[in-house]
């Protein structure tokens, strides 16, 4: 695993642009993603919250033929977001979220429920915090911290883990079996 500590020189920053590492905590109940982007925080914040932007990048990595069928986002405190993908051979999956804190362009907090199939969200949400820190000449260091609910049972744990961890859960089978 890479060291998430930021080095201040630009060559390191630039190297980080090309890689995202997920660091899972020892208890398996949280994970962190760190990544730099080549634009200032305001622009990156917008990419994470603006439906037109989300439609461009969110489906990336999903299998060919996947379609983003719903993309709504109201980035104000108490506002909701709802993304839905339909993935060939796997069907529908949806991300339902409530923004619990919006501090543009520095920080975004949300509770998120991930749903496979067409059911409504139930159970405890994952808690997500995104921070956007200006670095270098117009870069942004993003840290995504996701806390999973304490698992009452393995099924819940798996579903919640998958919820936070993947843009398209369905790709997991292909990826690991490839």
């Amino acid at each position: 695993m890479t060291d998430p500590t930021l080095q201040s020189d630009l060559s390191t920053l630039d190297a980080r642009r090309g890689s995202t590492r997920i660091e899972l905590s020892d208890d398996g109940l949280s994970y962190q993603c760190v990544r730099t982007f080549g634009a200032p925080p305001e622009r990156v914040f917008r990419a994470f919250t603006d439906p037109a932007d989300l439609r461009i990048w969110f489906p990336s990595g999903a299998p060919a033929g996947s379609e983003m069928t719903v993309c709504e986002s109201d980035p104000v405190e108490g506002g909701r977001y709802h993304y839905q993908m339909v993935i060939p051979e796997h069907g529908q999956m949806a991300w339902h979220g409530t923004y619990t804190g919006v501090d543009r362009p520095d920080r975004l907090d949300a509770d998120e429920w991930f749903v496979m199939g067409e059911s409504d969200p139930t159970g405890p949400p994952t808690n997500q915090t995104l921070t956007f820190e200006p670095v270098g000449s117009g870069f942004t260091l993003m840290t995504m911290q996701v806390n999973l609910p304490d698992p009452e049972d393995p099924e819940t744990f798996m579903e919640q883990s998958a919820a936070g961890l993947t843009s398209s859960l369905s790709t997991m089978d292909e990826l690991v079996s490839a």
């Binding site: 997920i22 982007f37 080549g38 117009g138 843009s167």
Partner: peptide, 26 residues
């Protein structure tokens, strides 16, 4: 495998924001 998925998504996000003429890093 999630690293791969996140990489793909964040590469796309980076492409989007860093090619934005108004705000790209130097």
């Amino acid at each position: 495998s999630f690293d791969d998925v996140w990489n793909a998504r964040f590469d796309a996000l980076d492409e989007l924001v860093s090619t934005d003429p108004e705000s790209s890093a130097t």
